[in-house]
Amino acid sequence: MDLVEKLAAAMRTMERQLLEHSLYSLGATHDLGAGHLIEPFLHHSDSQGRKEAQITAADITQQS
């Protein structure tokens, strides 16, 4: 999680495509601890950003 926490600090300023990729990376960890990093993006101004955050939140709750 240390690596993706550093990534999360920059996510607020990323363009949509890079944000989507970053959210995917968080989801791929399947780490429930990533929830606090994903939560702000559930309210993102861009609907696609919100959708990706919802998918990511679902991914971290699934077993790998």
Rank of each mutant, 00 (worst) to 15 (best):
H36F: 04
L3N: 12
I60L: 14
E5K: 12
S22P: 04
L37H: 07
A10S: 14
G27F: 01
A53R: 01
H21D: 13
V4M: 11
H44G: 02
H21S: 10
E52D: 09
I60Y: 04
D59P: 02
I60A: 05
L3I: 12
I38M: 02
F41K: 08
H43Q: 13
L37V: 04
Q54K: 14
E39L: 07
Y24G: 06
K6P: 01
R12D: 14
A57S: 14
D31G: 01
Y24A: 05
H43F: 11
L3P: 08
A9C: 09
Q63R: 09
G35Q: 08
Q17K: 14
I55K: 13
T13N: 11
L23Y: 06
R50N: 04
G33E: 13
L37T: 02
L23T: 00
H30M: 04
R50L: 07
T61V: 15
L42Y: 00
G49Q: 04
Q63P: 00
H21L: 10
H44M: 03
S45F: 08
Q62F: 06
Q17P: 02
I60V: 13
A34C: 15
D59I: 04
A8K: 00
H21W: 06
P40A: 01
I55F: 08
R16Q: 13
A57P: 00
S64D: 11
T13V: 06
H44K: 03
A9M: 11
A57T: 04
K51S: 07
L23S: 02
A8E: 00
Q54I: 10
S47I: 09
E15D: 12
L18T: 10
R50W: 05
R12L: 09
T13D: 12
I38W: 01
S64E: 10
D46N: 11
E20L: 13
Y24F: 06
S25D: 10
T56Y: 02
D31Q: 05
P40H: 04
L19K: 05
A9W: 06
T29I: 01
Y24L: 07
D2V: 15
L23A: 02
Y24E: 12
E20C: 14
G35D: 03
G35F: 02
K6Q: 07
I60H: 04
D31L: 03
S25L: 15
R50Y: 06
E15Q: 11
S45C: 05
T13P: 00
K6H: 04
D31A: 05
R50D: 06
